[in-house]
Amino acid sequence: MHDIVSKTDLRTGILERRAIMTPEARTAAARSLRDALLSVPEIEMAGTIAAYASIGTEPDTRSLLFALWKRGAYVLLPRLLPDGDLDWASFEGPDSLAPGPRGCLEPTEPPRGPGAVASADVVLVPAVAIDRSGMRLGRGGGSYDRALARVGPAILTVGLLYDTELVDEVPSEPHDRRVRAAATPAEGLVRFA
């Protein structure tokens, strides 16, 4: 029970800090993240990239998604299934998104199935915090832990964060999945061993 309380406390504190960020700070962070990620060799060469449409106070991914799509990458975005798992469908530009469950924007293209994430060359995931070993703290639903379990060990998996969210330690449970890197506005891509 100690880990659950610790996860909850860490998540609550970070989400409170996100809520008081200025729109200017959010815009600057999104631009820095986009620019840093677009220059990562694996992302430059990727044919298929699994990503997500940010919501609320998450680091904004709209300009990143558009840039990846315009560059010619096949971009997969998640669709939340009733059991909390993620299905995937192609992103065909900003007009191809529609409101989904829990305030998410989802692609309107035909679903490709939960296993489609395994075909991605790079996987970008939301995170509330990540520690320097790659342990990721999400929103608590386990959707991305299930998706990351389908991704091969050689695939670059990256959690997107604001600068203060790369922390010393994230409490974890056996089902939690690590990411291989984090991206922050100030540090760019930070790879984990």
Rank of each mutant, 00 (worst) to 15 (best):
T12Q: 14
R146D: 04
R132F: 03
R146M: 02
D163H: 05
P111A: 14
E42L: 06
T57Y: 02
R132H: 11
H2N: 11
S63F: 03
A46S: 14
G100F: 09
P107E: 13
L65M: 07
G13N: 07
A50D: 03
A46Q: 13
S96T: 04
A30K: 03
E187A: 13
R62D: 13
S143A: 15
V123G: 00
A182P: 12
A19P: 04
T22E: 04
S54L: 09
V125R: 01
L148E: 09
Y52N: 08
V123W: 00
R11H: 06
I130P: 00
V5F: 10
S54R: 04
A182R: 04
V179E: 05
A46Y: 13
R132K: 05
L33N: 13
R26N: 08
Y162L: 12
E187R: 15
V75Y: 05
D131W: 05
C104Q: 13
A116Y: 02
V128S: 02
V5T: 13
T61K: 02
I20E: 10
V128T: 14
Y74W: 08
G47M: 10
I43P: 08
L166H: 05
L38G: 10
T157M: 05
E165V: 09
V122G: 01
D176H: 06
A50T: 07
P99T: 04
L156I: 10
F91T: 03
V179H: 05
I20L: 06
P94H: 09
A181R: 03
I55W: 07
S32D: 15
Y74F: 07
E42Y: 08
T184K: 10
D3L: 08
A89I: 09
T157P: 07
I49A: 08
L37S: 07
E109L: 08
R17S: 13
L86E: 09
T48M: 15
A50Q: 02
S6M: 11
G103M: 12
H2F: 00
A98D: 01
R177P: 01
L97Y: 09
L161Y: 11
P174W: 04
P126R: 02
D87R: 05
A182I: 03
L37D: 11
V123I: 06
E109Q: 15
V5P: 00
R17I: 01
V75N: 07
I130S: 02
L76M: 15
L97G: 08
L97M: 09
A51F: 11
G141A: 03
G115Y: 01
I55G: 11
L161H: 08
T108D: 06
D121H: 04
R79T: 13
G115A: 14
E24H: 07
G56F: 10
S6N: 10
L124M: 11
G113P: 06
P23G: 06
T48E: 14
M21F: 00
L33C: 11
A186C: 06
L37E: 13
G84P: 06
S32G: 10
W69T: 00
S119M: 02
A25T: 09
E16P: 00
A127C: 04
T22C: 00
E109P: 00
G140K: 05
D85G: 12
I130Y: 00
P185E: 08
A46W: 14
G56D: 10
A51G: 07
R136V: 01
G152I: 05
R102F: 14
D60A: 12
A67N: 07
D83T: 14
L64T: 12
R31H: 11
G13R: 14
L80A: 13
F192Q: 05
A51M: 09
A183Q: 01
